[in-house]
Design a protein around this nucleic acid. Structure first.
Lengths: 344, 344
DNA sequence: ACATAAAATGTTAGCGCTAACATTTGGGGT
DNA sequence: ACCCCAAATGTTAGCGCTAACATTTTATGT
């Protein structure tokens, strides 16, 4: 009845194994393994025979078996709040671009901005015994920290730095500093009623706001009235709603710092609809300097964050540690840059 | 000298194993395994002892060993052109939201829109022996197809459908149909000189253009003069450049279909800078209906594509096949919707 | 031709887990 | 007290690969 090849092996889907190749060529499995993993240790004659057989039989190595035997997985885990956020797509690209040539697989997990999910996710990720882990933020629960410490693998915490000591390594920027920078810029521009709108108010957004308010306070401005934030997910649409709301309650506002560029785009569009001149009647500033920020009208004054570099630098640190190479600095602040454009 | 716990085992990082827990409690490893994987098979008394020990010792199961023993990985692989593209972030979210509750890990690979990379990536992914695979597009090289067929796992091809037969399952939309739909809409609106600009002209973009041109031809319009495309990566900035270029060479153009919303945003911004009234002097249309498209001024006429649904539906098909559940339709067209807004 | 090192290949065992079967234990029912 | 069956637990072996050591083959110098 069946046309499927009947194997004598009790379990297994009948995939081609090293053993199969070895038997076919009348050599031992370890020679086949060596031909594939360290070809210089095998004579050319045998190596070529093996390579031919491998390609003819369509042999595909089994990573699980390799991992079990070597106690290495060639995988790193990445824990981020949201994969569908443009900010993190850039970070991820940086991670990929470093890991791919280093032959490291990347496993992602989304926390959806939930500390609780973070714990279970970390536990689940560790199940894969990754060779290293990249995790967003410095605020980890004690349980998460314990899990990570027990894993005894290199860890890089990314996105922010300076706020508290990392578990292991750290690559990021100072969000407090970045917020303060923008606050000081708007103060220097003589705006009188400076507001703040923000969505997805995670720890880093809160610190940006905190730095921002510090700058206003230092300048003797009372800013606490002009704050409107939500924990809801950030979007362009929400930016429009937030600015609409804050302008309704506080029409005197003449400048707004948006906690990210998406919110700022929405704010700009809404102001346009209300025929408000930017920046003459109201100034708008953003955060991150996404691709579109230089193109929108008016071009957006924002803070450029090294998203791609945070990912690539973190991945480089991991690769070095995995390869036991020396690392001179395990705590890296990549800095930010204020892009003064037309909107503020 | 050393404070590290010296294990008798020759290899291994000294992680806690099932065996360790079993020895501690004077029971067998398989009972511990059962307590964790099918608790109903173990008496409450023993189960509770095990659970306590597991949590105290910080035991984390080893997936590699489990995979090797069960010949299942609980992992699916996803092959997409680019992870940093907003379009795919939405698709990915759909995949995640289905796979996470089904306890399936997701492994990503980027082809960067290169067929050649696709082949090596597929080979590398199969190394992990995923339980299923989601792959972008219907155009796969013979080598890729052979690899996938040999793997003997469920496969879902996503993003497009109808163009050619899938290897296994298929979830997507008709890009030709979507392009034609937009062409017919602009024709019905009596535009006379209708152009097309596009970046990242992959297979699907080409088919959108093809459908679009078919609609124009059917209406007796000559469109081939008003086409400007590039293989360069799509971006808002590039949208501005493309429309600038095509308006320089063909100032008579009165409507432009952009191959995606990013390009359309850039085109809108550039037209604003040139003081061109949209849609009075020039109409702009996009593709995908990203979040911002309803907010931008003027709001963008575009084609809404079921990005999230393509991801979630594909993942659902995979989950069903992995669990051997019946599937009624293995080839699903999710359809598109033309969002007529102010820009065209 | 022969000793000797180096290169190539092989043997054995075990990584941590679970499938399949084997055995023991614990409740009823009479 | 006895049997019977089901529930609970254990034993054995093997998934596919590679580390570590063992052995064979080949090249090199004299």
């Amino acid at each position: 009845m069946s046309t499927a090849p009947t194997k004598t092996k009790s379990r297994g889907k009948g995939r081609v194994t090293l053993e199969d190749i070895a038997k076919l060529l009348n050599i031992s499995a370890i020679t086949v393994s060596r031909a594939l993993n360290s070809p210089e240790k095998v004579s050319d004659k045998v190596r070529i025979k093996i390579e031919t057989a491998v390609s003819e039989l369509g042999y595909i190595p089994n990573r699980a078996a390799k991992s079990l035997a070597t106690n290495r997985t060639n995988t790193i885990a990445v824990v981020i709040p949201s994969i569908s956020n443009t900010v993190f797509s850039n970070v991820i690209k940086g991670i990929y671009d470093v890991c791919t040539p280093a032959d490291l697989d990347v496993l992602f997990a989304n926390t959806y901005y939930s500390t609780q999910k973070e714990e279970s996710l970390i536990a689940k990720l560790l199940t894969q015994h990754p060779d290293g882990i990249i995790i967003t933020g410095l605020d980890l629960s004690d349980k998460s920290k314990k899990l990570l410490n027990n894993a005894a693998i290199p860890i890089v915490q990314i996105m922010e730095t300076g706020y508290k000591d990392p578990i292991d390594m750290n690559v990021g920027i100072s969000h407090f500093g970045a917020g303060k920078m923008m606050g000081e810029y708007l103060v220097a521009r003589k705006y009188q009623h400076i507001g703040f709108i923000g969505a997805q108010m995670d720890f880093r957004s809160q610190r940006r706001m905190s730095g921002f308010l510090t700058a206003l306070n230092n300048a003797g401005l009372e800013a606490t009235d002009y704050i409107l934030t939500t924990k809801a997910a950030s979007s362009v649409k929400l930016g429009g709603q937030l600015i609409a709301d804050i302008l309704t309650t506080h029409p005197q506002i003449d400048a707004v710092f948006c906690n990210n560029d998406d919110i700022a785009y929405g704010a700009i569009y809404e102001c346009q609809r209300r025929q408000l001149q930017i920046p003459q009647q109201i100034a708008i500033a953003g955060f991150n300097d996404l691709d579109a920020s230089a193109c929108i009208n008016p071009s957006l004054t924002t803070i450029k964050t090294p998203l791609y570099e945070m990912g690539s630098t973190a991945a480089q640190l991991l690769v070095k540690r995995i390869k036991n190479q020396p690392i001179d600095n395990t705590c890296i602040d990549l800095g930010v840059e204020l892009k003064a454009r037309d909107s503020a």
